[in-house]
């Protein structure tokens, strides 16, 4: 019988203590961020989908060597190159397509590029009901960014 009352007492006390926590939380500062009105700072290393890096003149650094295409586990990248127009050695990229629907943001492509020609973007506001919206022409994207 005494055990019953003891449990009744400790049990009620535990509920009161728990209520105390709730009440304290009620008067503590709000931690929720009101998303569309305020946005968090995107960290430096955030991995959005990849994008091409431009050199000082605004031209893509990519030489279309195809290393990234081979490194990608899911075959997201299609890259094509053409001869340089100024007659110099090597190639320049003429086509760079990313199929973001299959990308797992693993970073293999960025790591495999010896020319630092691709990097992660900071895009995160991506939502669509159409698959085609996630197949990016990165070369066009870079040109748009430059202009």
């Amino acid at each position: 019988m005494s055990g019953y009352f003891k449990e009744l007492f400790t049990g009620t006390k535990s509920l009161a203590v728990g209520m105390g926590v709730t009440i304290r939380a009620f008067f503590s500062p709000v931690v929720t961020m009101q998303y569309p009105y305020e946005t968090p700072k995107i960290p430096e290393r955030f991995r959005g989908h990849i994008e091409l890096v431009a050199d000082d003149e605004g031209k893509p650094k990519c030489v279309a060597c195809g290393m990234c295409q081979r490194a990608c586990p899911s075959g997201c990248i299609t890259v094509k190159g053409k001869k340089r127009e100024d007659g110099g050695k090597g190639k320049v990229v003429s086509f760079y397509r990313l199929d973001f629907t299959k990308c797992s943001l693993c970073g293999q492509c960025v790591e495999s590029c010896k020319f630092d020609a691709i990097t992660f973007s900071k895009e995160y506001n991506l939502a669509s009901t159409r698959k085609e919206d996630f197949i990016y022409d990165l070369l066009k994207r870079l040109q748009e960014k430059n202009s």
């Binding site: 968090p40 960290p43 430096e44 290393r45 955030f46 943001l105 970073g107």
Partner: peptide, 15 residues
């Protein structure tokens, strides 16, 4: 998650 995001670049499925 914020801490890990700042080093790994992802919030859930880190690589």
């Amino acid at each position: 998650l914020d801490l890990l995001e700042s080093v790994t670049g992802a919030r859930l499925t880190y690589c």
